[in-house]
Amino acid sequence: MDDGTRRPAAGLPPPALTPPGRPLAKAYAALALGLVGRAFAVAHRVDPGLRRELADLPPGFSFALAVHPKGPRAALRMGEDGRLRYLGRGPESPDVLMRFQNLSAALAVLTFSASAFEVYARNGLAVSGDLPSTMAIIRALGLVESLILPRFVVARVLKRVPSAPFARKHAERALIYLALPFAGPTKE
């Protein structure tokens, strides 16, 4: 399996030609994934709709968003106390692993120019693990986006903007941004 490294196999000459890499794009993806992971954990505490969406995930359940093959990743785990915690890279084999097939697919979602559903439909997101849980997580990701992003961006990304009272939505958004710097990652 391709592990993304460029070391030549033993006894073989080094490769003659390799892609140049996209360090800036990769750094942005890492930053944005970290932000999304933290926002997920904080929003779960703040927003009852998000808690309802993920209510069926059992305690100990972990999921991760990652960039193939060895790119950045953000993992979260549902705690025994019902709280969702951001873990950083998290476990090697989470219960659900959603892996962007390449950096461009990841950037489409992480620059909020396409929804995770849309990228999934275009073969840009591979999933291993329980699919009903995955659907709930992708819907939850949409809710998180609707909580942290301005409406004109959300309207472009999501099929339908979730409706919420104006005051409550903005109060929740303020709480999320205030708590974001303290949202982990949690050591396991």
Binding site: F117, A121, L131, P132, S133, T134, M135, A136, I138, R139
Partner: peptide, 9 residues
């Protein structure tokens, strides 16, 4: 139905 994978499409 809302947890079915085809709903994504």
């Amino acid at each position: 139905a809302i947890d079915d994978a085809s709903i994504a499409y």
